[in-house]
């Protein structure tokens, strides 16, 4: 039996449902010694902004129970730097490339970035990072307000025909409401969850463990929160969900698929075991063969209640 692992996200046809979460995989080159990058379903880049960003002062990360906090602050070479220095390596791989973008200046910058990327044929899709907790130019994240989410997604939608994915924050009262707004505005998929806002203190010094005081929590610690949100969103929208939050092995990837994710992203696990993605891809194949499932899509949202 040759089971089907292919999934569709918008216009993308992925050979398997395993992606990498933005910001945890650099621009893929960092992982070339560890895995065959060609085997990935898709690669999501570290978030790009219009202008280069130096990022936040260190310390930028700390470990927490079964997780970690980060406040990198979207350090990146800017769109032109990305296209010149990072894209040449990525486009040789023959794997769908999803470019994550964020704005330092409202929806105008999303439009500029989406327009620029729309012209580049090697880029398969755009992920709108409207949920990074580490660049708060205003008091709120875009993804913390349904109306603003709708406006930004609509604006990006109007300038690109590429697959558009909207990345959502878990730091909200009702994530399904935000997902619905993204869907109505024309997003082809939603990805969730970004990191949970968190904080950790060194009690010997009385100081925060990361310089930015608060950061984003990721890793297995947040998995149950993320699975619940995927389930919630899956029931309310028709576009595919890309699920993520603390996936470290095949079993945790399966949880997300069963909860309603059409694909999954591996994040923090890449830091711990750079081979995680490859191991999960083969683990999923083994699982569906053993359980006599002919198509992985049958698992999506198959939660028995």
């Amino acid at each position: 039996m040759n089971p089907n692992l292919k999934v569709n996200i918008g216009k993308l046809n992925l050979k398997n449902p395993v992606l990498v979460a933005s910001g945890t995989f650099g621009y893929a080159e960092e992982f070339k010694d560890f895995i065959d990058l060609k085997k990935l379903g898709a690669i999501v880049t570290k978030t790009i902004t219009l202008n280069p960003r130096k990022g936040n002062p260190p310390p930028r990360t700390c470990e927490t129970p079964a997780g970690m906090l980060n406040s990198i602050g979207l350090e990146n070479p800017g769109i032109e730097g990305f296209l010149k220095e990072k894209l040449p390596f990525l486009k040789k791989l023959g794997v769908p490339i999803i470019v994550s973008i964020a704005s330092e200046g409202g929806q105008e910058e999303f439009i500029t970035l989406a327009k620029r990327l729309d012209k580049i044929k090697e880029i398969s899709a755009i992920e709108l990072n409207i949920s990074c907790p580490n660049i708060k130019e205003s008091a709120r994240l875009i993804s913390q307000d349904a109306k603003t989410t709708y406006k930004v997604v609509k604006a990006a939608r109007s300038v690109t025909r590429k697959t558009l994915i909207t990345k959502l924050s878990p730091n909200v009262t009702d994530i399904a409401e935000i997902a619905l707004a993204a869907e109505r505005a024309g997003s082809d998929a939603v990805s969730l969850v970004n990191t949970l806002a968190g904080m950790s203190i060194n009690v010997k010094t009385g100081k925060p463990k990361i310089a930015a005081i608060a950061g984003g929590l990721s890793g297995p610690a947040i998995r149950p929160v993320a699975v619940r949100m995927v389930w919630e969103v899956y029931q309310k929208i028709k576009i595919p969900v890309i699920g993520m939050g603390g996936i470290i092995d095949t079993e945790s990837a399966l949880e997300f698929l069963i909860a309603g994710a059409s694909a999954v992203s591996i994040g923090t696990a890449n830091f711990i075991n750079p081979r995680s993605t490859a191991e999960i891809i083969s683990g999923l194949r083994d699982y569906i063969i053993q359980n006599k499932i002919s198509d992985i899509n049958e698992l999506v949202g198959s939660l028995r209640v």
Partner: peptide, 17 residues
């Protein structure tokens, strides 16, 4: 020395000025 998450250059966590 710095606190590292990945150690392989991916996370951008362990920077110095």
């Amino acid at each position: 020395e710095a606190h590292m998450a990945c150690g392989i250059g991916a996370c951008m966590g362990c920077v110095i000025k």
